[in-house]
Each structure stands twice: as structure tokens, then as C-alpha cells.
Amino acid sequence: MQTPTGKKASKGTVSIEEFQGRLRLRWRFEGKRYVLSIGLPDSKVNRKVAQQKATVIELDIASGNFDATLKKYKPHIQTTSQLTVVTLFEKFIESKAKALLPTSLDKYRATLGYLKLVFPNQLASAISVKDAEKFIEWINNRGVSPIVCRERLILIRAAWKWGIKQQFLEINPWIEMVSRVRVPPKQRPKPFSSEEIKAIDLLQKFFVI
């Protein structure tokens, strides 16, 4: 049953709420609080789907068949086993292509080229934090500047974030990778030496009318 926002649901009752534009379920059972993301945007149709899931949980609680691991109730991720790193990023580019300038699109395609070299056939769902770290090591060994490396990682992180939103993936191993690339601060222009300052003063006096 749905309860108003901010109001605690009674024991064994599953409430439906919106969180960051997505629906999720919340309930209490045997002294523990549970939260389960449905992974769907808030709409009338999706709320019916969420209500069906909530009803299943309530019936399991009432009948003593509740799965405390929540595996039984989690939405199944579709096409995960078939989606490679390259395919994921290609789909990501397609979703952004219409809104990108040609110069920005070139950066996306260059990033795709790197992924094809490092992860030609790997599944996107199989990429771990260690794989992401190896990618950084590989890109550094190619002499890529820290600024460019950071740009590539930002795009890859965004692609995985998009993949999770589309329910292609569950985990983003690239979240902390961007912060691991240190970009040196821009060098300030060197100040004029005392001799250069004197020369400038002389030129200014010479050209004063």
C-alpha cells in the first residue's frame, strides 16, 4: 500500500515513493528497514508495476516466505549478458549524438577507439575497478596527457551511469577513476625581470608624445 511521503508505513506494509525521479519501495520487517529501487521513472503505469511488486512482498511477509536478501524482488537487468563495452559506448554515443557539436563528438569517438583497443570483446557488466585501473595505466603508457586522460574517463564514467539508468548495468566501476588522474595546474606567466622592466620603461618614455 502507498503511504504519504514522510509518513511511516505500518509493519509489513510496503510503501511506494519517488526518489530522484525513480520509484522505490520502502518497508519495515522484524525491526529492519528495507529499501528497494524499482528502476522505473515515476508515472501512473510504472506505479502500477511498483504496486504489483509491493503486493508480492507484503504477501511473502504475511505467509512467512519473505526473502531478506531481496534477490527475489529485484528487477531483472535485461541484455546485460550480451552487452559488450564497445556496444555500450556506441549506444551511449547514439543517445548523445544529436545534441553534440562535431568537436565534442570527436572526443566521444576517440574514447570509443581506446575502448576497442583495451576491451574489444569484454562484457560491460564484467568490468571491475581493477580493469578500470588497468585502463588508466594503459592510457598513461601511451603518453596521453593527464587532461585528455581525464576527459576520456569522464565520458566512460558517464556511459556507465547512462547504462545503469537504462537498466543495462548495475555497477559503475569508473566512479572514482577520474579523481585518480592529477592534472597539473596551469603555469602562470613568468614575471618580467628587473632588466626587462627597465627596458619597457625606456620604450614607454621614448614613444611618449
Rank of each mutant, 00 (worst) to 15 (best):
residue 92 F to M: 00
residue 139 I to S: 07
residue 113 G to F: 09
residue 96 K to L: 11
residue 137 E to L: 13
residue 121 N to S: 11
residue 142 R to N: 02
residue 110 A to S: 13
residue 93 I to E: 10
residue 110 A to P: 00
residue 105 L to F: 09
residue 116 K to A: 07
residue 99 A to L: 11
residue 95 S to R: 09
residue 114 Y to W: 13
residue 138 W to L: 11
residue 114 Y to R: 10
residue 115 L to Y: 06
residue 138 W to H: 15
residue 121 N to A: 06
residue 128 S to W: 09
residue 137 E to W: 01
residue 113 G to R: 12
residue 112 L to G: 02
residue 99 A to K: 15
residue 105 L to S: 10
residue 162 W to K: 02
residue 93 I to M: 13
residue 137 E to D: 11
residue 104 S to R: 03
residue 124 A to H: 05
residue 117 L to K: 14
residue 115 L to C: 09
residue 130 K to T: 13
residue 96 K to Y: 01
residue 95 S to V: 06
residue 123 L to M: 15
residue 110 A to T: 15
residue 145 S to N: 07
residue 158 A to M: 00
residue 149 C to K: 07
residue 137 E to C: 06
residue 125 S to F: 01
residue 99 A to R: 15
residue 102 P to Y: 08
residue 144 V to K: 09
residue 124 A to T: 08
residue 118 V to F: 15
residue 152 R to N: 11
residue 149 C to H: 02
residue 156 I to Q: 02
residue 140 N to V: 04
residue 136 I to K: 10
residue 134 K to E: 06
residue 141 N to D: 12
residue 96 K to M: 10
residue 147 I to V: 14
residue 127 I to V: 15
residue 156 I to R: 05
residue 106 D to I: 11
residue 119 F to W: 13
residue 128 S to K: 15
residue 134 K to V: 07
residue 109 R to A: 07
residue 107 K to M: 08
